[in-house]
């Protein structure tokens, strides 16, 4: 598969801190790639390096099969929140950005700005000054700027940050629609639910390192089954589960969990009954993505939103 973004050993050091630490990105063309990691894990810095805003300490990267400067006209980007001139209107701000683009056609600028604003639902506010925009409107104007021209790749850094539920839904459905048109989307987020909802592929960042990368479906396939026993005798249940060779037994008030491994669930139930444990409920479940990411990063994710 062709890579929309590929990097090798990409590293950015700030003083003694490795903000990005030798990451090998492989973002398949046409994918919606969720770049997931807690705050401070190096997502924004990676995007800055990929866009040529910050120079890598070592390593290399390729965007759309070419150098950053050549690829950028085909890349729309939102980096660390929107930023515009407060005293200019939405339209004037977009025209200003378009004027800076040496490959943009001036004669179609107004029409392109108009349709980008329409796409994000800002037509009514097009003439208002940016400073009068709400947070959601600002974020949408940022996305409109990324849509000024037909793009092959969109790099969106936490596009729903700070939005209310309504704004979040709007932005997500916009991203889904864009992805449906065949644009590769590189979406950074600290929200697992967002990545689960939108992405086909995922890269997991932790303290500057890319700890897992691949198709979301592959990650799900790796999920280990475990058994969950509801009982008022957790201590006895624990003993039985350990005696039949289940690993990772955790007892809590009212229930016990353990990794199923190679054991057959019916044998486990039989052993519990033989051991005199009063079973109120029994289930075979799979670890949630949340738990997998905690295992990968050693940190929890914000699951809200």
């Amino acid at each position: 598969m062709v890579a929309a973004i590929a990097s090798e050993g990409l590293t950015k050091r700030f003083g003694s801190l490795n903000a990005v630490d030798g990451i090998d990105l492989a973002v398949p063309a046409g994918s919606v790639y969720g770049f997931l990691g807690p705050n401070g894990s190096g997502k924004t810095t990676t995007i800055r390096v990929l866009l040529g805003l910050v120079f890598a300490t070592s390593g290399s990267h390729v965007l759309l099969g070419t150098s950053t400067q050549r690829a950028l006209p085909k890349v729309g980007a939102l980096v660390e929140g929107p930023a515009f001139h407060p005293y200019l209107s939405g339209t004037a701000n977009l025209l200003r950005l378009d004027a800076a683009d040496r490959t943009a056609d001036a004669s179609t600028a107004r029409a392109r700005v108009g349709s980008a604003l329409e796409r994000v639902g800002l037509t009514a506010a097009a003439g208002k000054r940016y400073r009068a925009y709400s947070l959601g409107m600002r974020q949408r104007l940022g996305i409109a700027a990324a849509l000024l021209r037909p793009r092959e790749l969109l790099m969106l850094d936490e596009p729903t940050n700070g939005l209310d539920p309504q704004g979040t839904r709007e932005v997500r459905s916009l991203i889904a629609a864009l992805a449906g048109e065949g644009v590769t989307v590189f979406l950074s987020s600290h929200l697992l639910s967002e990545v689960e909802q939108l992405c086909s592929d995922v890269g997991v960042m932790s303290a500057g390192r890319l700890v897992w990368q691949g198709a979301l479906a592959d990650l799900r396939a790796q999920q280990e089954p475990y058994v969950r026993v509801e009982t008022v005798q957790p201590a006895e249940a624990r003993q039985v589960l350990e005696s039949v060779g289940l690993a990772g037994v955790e007892a809590a008030d009212g229930h016990v969990r353990a990794r199923l491994g190679e054991a057959r669930p019916e044998d486990v139930v039989a052993a519990l009954v033989r051991g005199g444990v009063g079973v109120r409920g029994f289930a075979v479940e799979r670890a949630s993505l949340e738990e997998q990411f905690v295992a990968l990063t050693g940190e929890g994710f914000d699951v809200s939103g």
Partner: peptide
């Protein structure tokens, strides 16, 4: 300071040209 510099450069306006 307004953050617009990163967007100008991502256009790309070109550093020398800007």
């Amino acid at each position: 300071s307004s953050g617009t510099l990163r967007y100008l450069l991502a256009i790309p306006a070109g550093r020398s040209r800007l």
